[in-house]
């Protein structure tokens, strides 16, 4: 319940935060704190320096950016869930945000903090992968944009470099596509046992393209390439068969609540449900 002691800094700019991050090997960034603080309270994380991003102005927003919607890294799940702009331009992310944790968690937790933590059962990664989102990271050497597909690299790990922090997430507008996020909640933690995000484009009664992001199954969220390919040019009747390949080639994780085999099975079931819902959403 009680974190170990640490030094604390609350920089007022991203540049200061980056400088602080480089000043210590045992520094951690504090965004909403809903991944990090629970770990610190159980003393599973004991950073020497905590850099609180909460005092940096201008990191919380949802705004139009050309064909994309840009979100500040410190935007809370609640703001994402309730955003009218996302509802009209790219509703999938809001839909995923609404299924994160509970009201209190959504009021504090941030998208930047969540994806940097890269919990294998988190909800956003599935949506960001399906959307082909981009993550904007800034470090001492400047800013770079990381495609979501290249961002999640393993269990609690990303391709962020040390000294980098996330400033923005960009998701494309999904006008013309149907989207859905179907989630099997862990009854205790509320995390995804399996979560499937789908972006489906239809043309003359057949699936033109499908992008499917899956969380909860493997050590990090992934794009279900085999299922996506199997869905192209298929009518509704072929969806179940195609979605049975949702976890093809995936090294699944298992625990006392859900074995690897069961998670792979659920991936197929929830993939089908997500794709069907996405198609219905479009119709």
């Amino acid at each position: 319940m009680i974190p170990a002691n640490f030094d604390y800094q609350a920089p007022s700019s991203v540049e200061q935060a980056i400088a602080l991050l480089e000043s210590s090997h045992e520094a951690k960034l504090l965004a909403g704190g809903h991944s990090l603080l629970p770990a610190m309270k159980l003393r599973l994380a004991e950073p020497a320096l905590l850099i609180d991003l909460g005092r940096i102005p201008g990191l919380s927003y949802v705004r139009e950016a050309g064909a994309q919607v840009a979100l500040g890294a410190m935007t809370t799940h609640a703001a994402i869930a309730e955003s009218p702009l996302l509802a009209s331009r790219s509703p999938l992310l809001s839909r995923a945000a609404r299924q994160i944790g509970d009201v209190q968690v959504r009021n504090r937790g941030t998208i930047g903090g969540s994806i940097a933590h890269a919990d294998p059962a988190a909800d956003y990664p599935a949506a960001l992968l399906a959307l082909d989102a981009e993550i904007v990271a800034r470090g001492r050497k400047g800013e770079r944009t990381i495609p979501a597909r290249e961002f999640f690299s393993g269990l609690f790990s990303t391709t962020l470099l040390s000294g980098e922090l996330i400033t923005e997430i960009r998701v494309p507008a999904t006008t013309g596509a149907g989207t859905s996020y179907a989630k099997f909640h862990h009854p205790a933690s509320g995390f995804a046992v399996v979560g499937v995000a789908a972006v489906v484009k239809m043309a003359s009664g057949k699936i033109q393209s499908a992008a499917i992001g899956i969380t909860g199954v493997a050590d990090h969220a992934y794009r279900a390439g085999a299922a996506e390919r199997a869905l192209v040019n298929q009518p509704a009747s072929a969806i179940a068969g195609a979605c049975s390949r949702a976890a093809e080639g995936v090294d699944a994780l298992g625990d006392h609540f859900a074995s690897a085999e069961y998670r792979k099975h659920l991936a197929a079931v929830y993939c089908r449900r997500a794709v069907q819902e996405a198609m219905a959403a479009k119709a």
Partner: peptide, 29 residues
């Protein structure tokens, strides 16, 4: 205080008008 893992909600208060779990917020925040 009812749990250590930000789940039980016994510590819920309003911070700037929104419900939060006060066991998962540092006082300095």
């Amino acid at each position: 205080i009812g749990c250590e893992t930000s789940l039980c909600g016994a510590c819920t208060v309003m911070l700037e008008g929104r419900a939060v779990k006060s066991c998962t917020v540092l006082a300095v925040q």
